[in-house]
Write a protein that binds this DNA or RNA. Structure first.
Lengths: 144, 144
DNA sequence: CATTTAAAACGTAATATTTACGATTTACAA
DNA sequence: TTGTAAATCGTAAATATTACGTTTTAAATG
């Protein structure tokens, strides 16, 4: 997914192309990491002071629907990031400090032999959490 | 983990053995599935009407600390279940309707060759979500 | 360009989950 | 039995998310 691709997705699905949506796409594109709704709002308010959570959440849900962002949750908060890896199924190493990710191309579901009995699988989650090198440095410094 | 083992854990770590804690352990033992804090409170209030969330959350955190319950979160809620599988590392198939689980003994981390560079792994999560057979029936019936 | 209209955003409030705190009660050891 | 640290109560406060009526706006149409 690139910036233009995301904007096209909005247009293609018949959604209005507003300055705020453009900016929101840009924020995700630029950051390319998992962001909480609060972080997104903070970035957006640099350009649109007084922007409300309603607008943020509504558009985050929309972006998730049409596949501009992918989501997960950790530490009790929902997080959103610009779709990476195109249509390819993938998983992530996630830095829980800054939300930066590294893509993992192996999927454990391939190793699960056959379908389990009496159980309809609707989804799965495989994520590796940790601290990236730059956050590791930050933590070390803050403890001096 | 069995019922007595959990009670021993409390005693062994020097925590007070109260009726409420005993009941709480029993609830988890009996249900043996993931429960939300709200569900736990509901069960507990059958015996202790007026029991507060404070007590629930405090003890859930304690139980997690000393290894009586294991936790996860989905659909924006933290969930708790009686530790299963002893000390053995494992993962779960989880019915997102009722919280019942099936243990998976394979761990995808074994397939990750070597440690990633510049990244300290602190944890990982592998869960398969779906609908168990009895909930599947319930849903079908409710749609009649 | 003016008009129309469906969608988006605003302002604000409600809901749900989790955490916090001073006052009171209780388990347990001395 | 008594003293004390821990547990619980009652209540309130954060925190995250969702909802809704009103106003504004993008963009299609004539």
């Amino acid at each position: 997914m690139d910036l233009q691709g995301a904007l096209d997705l909005l247009k293609r699905n018949g959604y209005k192309y507003t300055g705020k949506r453009k900016r929101l796409v840009e924020v995700f594109y630029r950051e390319s990491r998992y962001l909480s709704a609060k972080e997104v709002l903070d970035y957006m308010q640099e350009d649109y002071p007084g922007l409300s959570f309603d607008t943020i959440y509504r558009n985050l849900a929309l972006f998730e629907d049409i596949g501009i962002v992918e989501t997960t949750e950790w530490q009790g908060e929902r997080r959103y990031r610009f779709c990476c890896g195109g249509d390819e199924h993938h998983h992530h190493l996630i830095c829980t400090f800054c939300g930066k990710t590294r893509t993992i191309h192996v999927c454990p579901m391939n190793a699960i032999l056959g379908k389990p009995e009496d159980f309809d699988i609707t989804g799965h989650k495989f994520e590796i959490y940790g601290t990236c090198s730059s956050c590791k440095t930050d933590v070390a410094v803050s403890e001096m």
